[in-house]
């Protein structure tokens, strides 16, 4: 199965050269349109940069319930390291009842 990447040009172009299907999102407001072109059935993993992930949070919701494709948040060129963590933290909290993942030791 293939992998896909959604994000800004800098993030997608590089990975395109590495054989991923790249979907560049120019303006965040156009993210939905780009997403329309993606066929989630084709991919096992879809990497999404954080700003695009935030813009597509509603569209990506149904995928969370499924095993494939796995949507993984990565930082964009401008940074942004919170969405991926928050998601896992929410899951951990739901399962365990407390935030144990990023607690300082």
């Amino acid at each position: 199965m293939k992998m896909a990447i959604l994000g800004d040009q800098t993030a997608t172009e590089g990975f395109k050269a590495l054989g991923l299907d790249a979907f560049a999102v120019g303006e965040l407001s156009g993210a939905q349109e780009v997403w329309q072109a993606v066929d989630p059935e084709k991919y096992s993993v879809i990497f999404v940069t954080e700003p695009v992930y935030r813009a597509l949070i509603v569209e990506l919701e149904p995928l969370r319930e499924r095993v494939y494709p796995v949507v993984t948040v990565i930082p964009s060129v401008l940074g942004g390291r919170n969405a991926g963590r928050d998601e896992i933290r929410a899951l951990v909290e739901k399962a365990v009842g407390t935030d144990i993942m990023f607690r300082e030791e």
């Binding site: 969370r64 951990v92 739901k94």
Partner: peptide
């Protein structure tokens, strides 16, 4: 590009691990 190539396997591993966490979390709940 060579940096990206190096990091790609770890990105896939990350996706797999996070997915495992997700599934485990549902099951635990």
């Amino acid at each position: 590009l060579s940096r990206m190539r190096e990091v790609l396997p770890r990105m896939v591993l990350l996706a797999q691990r996070e997915n495992t966490i997700k599934m485990l979390a549902w099951e635990i709940e």
